[in-house]
Amino acid sequence: MKHLLSIEELTREQIEKIVDLAILLKKDRKASPQVLAGQQWALIFTKSSTRTRVSFEVGIRELGGQVMFLSGADIQLGRGEPIKDTARVLSRMIHGAVIRTFAQQDVVDFAKYGTIPTINALTDDEHPCQILADLQTIKERLGGWEGKRICFLGDGDCNVARSWIWASARLGFELVIGAPKAFQPQETFMSGVPAGTVRVVDDPVEAVKGCDVLYTDVWVSMGKEAESADRIETLRPWQINDTLLKQAKPDAIVMHCLPAYRGKEITDEVMEANADIIFDEAENRLHAQKAVIVEIVQQAS
Protein backbone atom coordinates (compact mmCIF):
# COMPACT_ATOMS: atom_id res chain seq x y z
CA MET A 1 0.00 0.00 0.00
CA LYS A 2 1.90 3.02 -1.29
CA HIS A 3 -1.02 5.47 -1.42
CA LEU A 4 -4.62 5.81 -0.25
CA LEU A 5 -6.57 7.02 -3.27
CA SER A 6 -9.89 5.22 -2.86
CA ILE A 7 -11.71 2.48 -0.97
CA GLU A 8 -12.09 0.78 -4.36
CA GLU A 9 -8.35 0.09 -4.51
CA LEU A 10 -8.16 -1.47 -1.03
CA THR A 11 -8.51 -5.15 -0.26
CA ARG A 12 -10.58 -6.60 2.57
CA GLU A 13 -7.38 -7.42 4.44
CA GLN A 14 -6.03 -3.88 4.10
CA ILE A 15 -9.26 -2.32 5.36
CA GLU A 16 -9.43 -4.65 8.35
CA LYS A 17 -5.78 -4.04 9.20
CA ILE A 18 -6.20 -0.25 9.09
CA VAL A 19 -9.34 -0.34 11.26
CA ASP A 20 -7.71 -2.62 13.85
CA LEU A 21 -4.61 -0.43 13.97
CA ALA A 22 -6.74 2.70 14.35
CA ILE A 23 -8.45 1.17 17.39
CA LEU A 24 -5.06 0.39 18.93
CA LEU A 25 -3.69 3.88 18.23
CA LYS A 26 -6.77 5.40 19.85
CA LYS A 27 -6.16 3.54 23.11
CA ASP A 28 -2.90 5.36 23.80
CA ARG A 29 -2.18 8.45 21.72
CA LYS A 30 1.00 9.18 23.69
CA ALA A 31 2.45 5.90 22.43
CA SER A 32 2.03 6.77 18.76
CA PRO A 33 4.91 5.31 16.71
CA GLN A 34 7.24 8.04 15.49
CA VAL A 35 7.23 6.80 11.92
CA LEU A 36 7.35 10.35 10.51
CA ALA A 37 10.32 11.58 12.53
CA GLY A 38 12.35 13.95 10.37
CA GLN A 39 9.66 14.10 7.69
CA GLN A 40 7.77 17.07 6.27
CA TRP A 41 4.25 16.43 4.91
CA ALA A 42 2.02 18.83 3.01
CA LEU A 43 -1.73 19.27 3.20
CA ILE A 44 -2.87 20.52 -0.21
CA PHE A 45 -6.47 21.67 0.07
CA THR A 46 -8.46 23.36 -2.70
CA LYS A 47 -11.62 22.53 -0.71
CA SER A 48 -12.01 24.01 2.74
CA SER A 49 -12.28 21.80 5.80
CA THR A 50 -12.42 21.71 9.59
CA ARG A 51 -12.21 18.05 10.66
CA THR A 52 -9.97 16.91 7.80
CA ARG A 53 -7.38 19.63 8.27
CA VAL A 54 -7.24 19.41 12.06
CA SER A 55 -7.18 15.62 12.19
CA PHE A 56 -4.38 15.34 9.64
CA GLU A 57 -2.29 18.13 11.16
CA VAL A 58 -2.57 16.65 14.64
CA GLY A 59 -2.07 13.11 13.38
CA ILE A 60 1.09 13.89 11.41
CA ARG A 61 2.57 15.70 14.42
CA GLU A 62 1.65 12.85 16.78
CA LEU A 63 3.51 10.48 14.43
CA GLY A 64 6.62 12.68 14.74
CA GLY A 65 6.38 14.63 11.49
CA GLN A 66 6.08 18.27 10.55
CA VAL A 67 3.25 19.60 8.41
CA MET A 68 2.61 22.55 6.12
CA PHE A 69 -0.79 23.66 4.85
CA LEU A 70 -1.22 24.80 1.24
CA SER A 71 -4.62 26.22 0.34
CA GLY A 72 -6.12 26.82 -3.08
CA ALA A 73 -4.59 30.29 -2.99
CA ASP A 74 -1.13 28.84 -2.38
CA ILE A 75 -1.12 26.13 -5.04
CA GLN A 76 -3.28 25.82 -8.15
CA LEU A 77 -3.79 22.09 -8.23
CA GLY A 78 -4.86 21.16 -11.74
CA ARG A 79 -4.85 24.78 -12.94
CA GLY A 80 -1.89 26.43 -14.58
CA GLU A 81 1.07 24.16 -13.89
CA PRO A 82 0.24 20.56 -14.80
CA ILE A 83 -0.37 18.15 -11.93
CA LYS A 84 2.48 15.95 -13.08
CA ASP A 85 4.93 18.85 -12.77
CA THR A 86 3.63 19.89 -9.34
CA ALA A 87 3.97 16.30 -8.13
CA ARG A 88 7.53 16.02 -9.39
CA VAL A 89 8.59 19.28 -7.79
CA LEU A 90 7.03 18.61 -4.41
CA SER A 91 8.35 15.06 -4.36
CA ARG A 92 11.87 16.52 -4.18
CA MET A 93 11.01 18.65 -1.14
CA ILE A 94 8.45 16.83 1.02
CA HIS A 95 7.87 13.27 2.17
CA GLY A 96 4.11 12.90 1.74
CA ALA A 97 1.03 14.71 0.42
CA VAL A 98 -2.54 14.80 1.69
CA ILE A 99 -4.84 16.22 -0.98
CA ARG A 100 -8.42 17.49 -0.64
CA THR A 101 -9.74 18.70 -3.97
CA PHE A 102 -12.49 18.39 -6.56
CA ALA A 103 -11.31 16.00 -9.28
CA GLN A 104 -10.32 12.43 -8.38
CA GLN A 105 -8.04 12.39 -11.42
CA ASP A 106 -5.91 15.15 -9.86
CA VAL A 107 -5.11 12.90 -6.89
CA VAL A 108 -4.52 9.90 -9.15
CA ASP A 109 -2.16 11.88 -11.38
CA PHE A 110 -0.29 13.34 -8.41
CA ALA A 111 0.35 9.83 -7.09
CA LYS A 112 1.34 8.57 -10.55
CA TYR A 113 3.92 11.23 -11.32
CA GLY A 114 5.16 11.89 -7.79
CA THR A 115 7.46 9.66 -5.79
CA ILE A 116 5.88 10.22 -2.36
CA PRO A 117 2.89 8.74 -0.51
CA THR A 118 -0.34 10.43 -1.56
CA ILE A 119 -3.55 10.35 0.48
CA ASN A 120 -6.98 11.30 -0.81
CA ALA A 121 -8.53 13.50 1.88
CA LEU A 122 -11.69 13.95 -0.25
CA THR A 123 -12.59 14.38 -3.89
CA ASP A 124 -15.92 14.61 -5.68
CA ASP A 125 -15.68 10.86 -6.37
CA GLU A 126 -14.59 9.35 -3.05
CA HIS A 127 -13.95 10.04 0.64
CA PRO A 128 -11.90 7.02 1.76
CA CYS A 129 -10.62 8.45 5.05
CA GLN A 130 -14.17 9.12 6.23
CA ILE A 131 -15.34 5.58 5.54
CA LEU A 132 -12.34 4.04 7.34
CA ALA A 133 -13.21 6.13 10.40
CA ASP A 134 -16.85 5.10 10.05
CA LEU A 135 -15.92 1.43 9.94
CA GLN A 136 -13.80 1.91 13.05
CA THR A 137 -16.81 3.48 14.78
CA ILE A 138 -19.10 0.61 13.79
CA LYS A 139 -16.59 -1.95 15.06
CA GLU A 140 -16.27 -0.10 18.36
CA ARG A 141 -20.03 0.26 18.79
CA LEU A 142 -21.42 -2.91 17.24
CA GLY A 143 -18.44 -5.26 17.34
CA GLY A 144 -18.04 -5.21 13.59
CA TRP A 145 -19.96 -4.97 10.34
CA GLU A 146 -20.41 -8.66 9.55
CA GLY A 147 -24.10 -9.49 9.39
CA LYS A 148 -25.05 -5.84 9.77
CA ARG A 149 -27.34 -3.84 7.52
CA ILE A 150 -26.18 -0.27 6.89
CA CYS A 151 -28.45 2.30 5.27
CA PHE A 152 -27.17 5.47 3.62
CA LEU A 153 -29.97 8.04 3.25
CA GLY A 154 -30.10 11.13 1.03
CA ASP A 155 -27.82 11.88 -1.91
CA GLY A 156 -26.89 8.34 -2.91
CA ASP A 157 -24.58 9.52 -5.67
CA CYS A 158 -22.23 11.61 -3.50
CA ASN A 159 -18.60 10.78 -2.71
CA VAL A 160 -19.38 9.33 0.73
CA ALA A 161 -22.09 7.05 -0.65
CA ARG A 162 -19.74 5.82 -3.37
CA SER A 163 -17.06 4.99 -0.83
CA TRP A 164 -19.67 3.13 1.24
CA ILE A 165 -20.58 1.12 -1.85
CA TRP A 166 -16.96 0.10 -2.35
CA ALA A 167 -16.62 -0.75 1.35
CA SER A 168 -19.62 -3.06 1.03
CA ALA A 169 -18.11 -4.65 -2.08
CA ARG A 170 -14.86 -5.34 -0.26
CA LEU A 171 -16.21 -6.37 3.18
CA GLY A 172 -19.48 -8.05 2.25
CA PHE A 173 -21.90 -6.36 4.64
CA GLU A 174 -25.41 -5.46 3.50
CA LEU A 175 -25.73 -1.90 2.22
CA VAL A 176 -28.94 -0.08 1.36
CA ILE A 177 -28.83 3.23 -0.50
CA GLY A 178 -32.07 5.06 0.25
CA ALA A 179 -32.54 7.93 -2.16
CA PRO A 180 -35.07 9.48 -4.53
CA LYS A 181 -34.53 8.45 -8.14
CA ALA A 182 -32.78 11.70 -9.07
CA PHE A 183 -30.16 11.08 -6.38
CA GLN A 184 -29.48 7.39 -6.84
CA PRO A 185 -26.03 6.10 -7.90
CA GLN A 186 -25.44 6.59 -11.60
CA GLU A 187 -25.48 3.55 -13.86
CA THR A 188 -22.02 4.42 -15.17
CA PHE A 189 -20.68 4.11 -11.63
CA MET A 190 -22.68 1.03 -10.66
CA SER A 191 -21.60 -0.81 -13.80
CA GLY A 192 -18.14 -1.13 -12.26
CA VAL A 193 -19.42 -2.42 -8.91
CA PRO A 194 -19.82 -6.18 -8.33
CA ALA A 195 -23.44 -7.29 -8.74
CA GLY A 196 -25.37 -7.73 -5.51
CA THR A 197 -23.20 -5.29 -3.56
CA VAL A 198 -25.92 -2.77 -2.79
CA ARG A 199 -29.70 -2.48 -2.75
CA VAL A 200 -31.04 0.87 -3.97
CA VAL A 201 -34.45 1.85 -2.57
CA ASP A 202 -36.60 4.89 -3.40
CA ASP A 203 -38.83 4.75 -0.31
CA PRO A 204 -37.35 5.98 3.00
CA VAL A 205 -39.41 3.69 5.24
CA GLU A 206 -38.53 0.61 3.21
CA ALA A 207 -34.88 1.68 3.14
CA VAL A 208 -34.41 1.78 6.92
CA LYS A 209 -36.38 -1.37 7.84
CA GLY A 210 -34.17 -3.84 9.67
CA CYS A 211 -31.15 -1.55 9.56
CA ASP A 212 -28.47 -1.54 12.26
CA VAL A 213 -26.94 1.75 11.12
CA LEU A 214 -28.63 4.83 9.63
CA TYR A 215 -26.12 7.12 7.95
CA THR A 216 -26.57 10.51 6.34
CA ASP A 217 -24.54 13.37 4.89
CA VAL A 218 -25.21 16.96 3.94
CA TRP A 219 -27.68 17.43 1.12
CA VAL A 220 -25.84 20.37 -0.45
CA SER A 221 -22.16 19.50 -0.84
CA MET A 222 -19.49 22.01 -1.76
CA GLY A 223 -19.94 23.01 -5.39
CA LYS A 224 -23.68 22.22 -5.37
CA GLU A 225 -24.85 25.48 -3.80
CA ALA A 226 -26.73 26.60 -6.92
CA GLU A 227 -28.94 23.52 -6.58
CA SER A 228 -29.62 24.11 -2.89
CA ALA A 229 -33.37 24.85 -2.98
CA ASP A 230 -34.21 21.97 -5.35
CA ARG A 231 -32.06 19.51 -3.43
CA ILE A 232 -33.59 20.35 -0.06
CA GLU A 233 -37.13 20.08 -1.41
CA THR A 234 -36.52 16.73 -3.13
CA LEU A 235 -34.60 15.19 -0.24
CA ARG A 236 -36.87 16.41 2.58
CA PRO A 237 -38.68 13.01 2.98
CA TRP A 238 -35.29 11.40 3.57
CA GLN A 239 -34.54 13.33 6.75
CA ILE A 240 -33.51 11.16 9.70
CA ASN A 241 -36.10 12.00 12.36
CA ASP A 242 -37.78 10.15 15.22
CA THR A 243 -40.57 8.88 12.98
CA LEU A 244 -38.21 7.35 10.42
CA LEU A 245 -35.86 6.03 13.09
CA LYS A 246 -38.68 3.96 14.61
CA GLN A 247 -38.80 1.93 11.38
CA ALA A 248 -35.22 0.68 11.88
CA LYS A 249 -34.07 -1.84 14.48
CA PRO A 250 -34.82 -0.72 18.05
CA ASP A 251 -31.10 -0.50 18.86
CA ALA A 252 -30.04 1.06 15.55
CA ILE A 253 -27.35 3.74 15.71
CA VAL A 254 -27.27 6.96 13.72
CA MET A 255 -24.10 8.28 12.10
CA HIS A 256 -23.26 11.52 10.29
CA CYS A 257 -19.91 12.45 8.75
CA LEU A 258 -20.43 16.16 9.57
CA PRO A 259 -20.91 19.03 9.21
CA ALA A 260 -24.57 18.49 10.10
CA TYR A 261 -27.30 20.87 9.01
CA ARG A 262 -29.85 20.26 11.72
CA GLY A 263 -33.40 20.49 10.52
CA LYS A 264 -32.42 19.36 7.02
CA GLU A 265 -30.85 15.89 6.67
CA ILE A 266 -31.21 15.20 10.41
CA THR A 267 -33.29 16.70 13.21
CA ASP A 268 -31.71 18.35 16.20
CA GLU A 269 -33.38 15.78 18.47
CA VAL A 270 -31.93 12.75 16.65
CA MET A 271 -28.54 14.44 16.35
CA GLU A 272 -28.37 15.07 20.09
CA ALA A 273 -29.63 11.60 20.98
CA ASN A 274 -26.76 10.11 18.93
CA ALA A 275 -24.16 12.78 19.69
CA ASP A 276 -21.77 10.41 21.49
CA ILE A 277 -21.63 8.15 18.46
CA ILE A 278 -21.39 10.96 15.91
CA PHE A 279 -18.60 12.77 17.71
CA ASP A 280 -16.73 9.50 18.32
CA GLU A 281 -17.01 9.09 14.55
CA ALA A 282 -15.53 12.56 14.06
CA GLU A 283 -12.66 11.84 16.48
CA ASN A 284 -11.95 8.57 14.71
CA ARG A 285 -10.86 10.49 11.63
CA LEU A 286 -7.68 11.24 13.58
CA HIS A 287 -6.99 7.63 14.51
CA ALA A 288 -7.96 6.08 11.17
CA GLN A 289 -5.79 8.54 9.25
CA LYS A 290 -2.85 7.89 11.55
CA ALA A 291 -3.33 4.18 10.89
CA VAL A 292 -3.29 4.82 7.13
CA ILE A 293 -0.04 6.78 7.38
CA VAL A 294 1.61 4.16 9.61
CA GLU A 295 0.62 1.40 7.20
CA ILE A 296 1.95 3.31 4.18
CA VAL A 297 5.25 4.28 5.82
CA GLN A 298 5.95 0.86 7.30
CA GLN A 299 5.32 -0.90 4.02
CA ALA A 300 7.64 1.54 2.24
CA SER A 301 10.51 0.96 4.66
Rank of each mutant, 00 (worst) to 15 (best):
S163Q: 02
L135K: 05
T101V: 07
N159K: 02
E81N: 03
D125N: 12
V89G: 06
T137C: 07
P128W: 10
N159M: 02
A133P: 11
A121T: 11
G78H: 01
H127G: 10
A97N: 09
L153A: 09
D106Q: 09
N120A: 14
D124A: 12
I119S: 05
E81M: 02
I131Q: 08
H127L: 08
S91I: 03
C158H: 13
T86N: 10
L135V: 05
K148V: 02
E140R: 11
A111R: 04
D124H: 12
V160Q: 05
D125H: 15
G78I: 02
V89H: 03
E140W: 06
D109V: 10
F152T: 00
I119Q: 09
V98Q: 04
A161W: 00
G143L: 12
D157C: 12
N159I: 00
G144D: 05
P128H: 07
Y113R: 10
K112S: 13
D134V: 03
R79E: 14
T86V: 06
F152Q: 01
F102E: 14
I116D: 13
D134Q: 14
I131R: 03
A97W: 06
R92K: 12
S91C: 05
F152G: 00
G78L: 02
D134K: 07
G144S: 11
P82T: 03
L142V: 09
A161R: 01
D106H: 15
Y113C: 04
T101N: 08
G144R: 05
Q136W: 05
Q130Y: 10
H127N: 14
Q136K: 14
R88G: 14
R88Y: 09
I150A: 00
L77S: 02
R141K: 15
F152I: 00
Q105H: 11
D124S: 13
R141W: 05
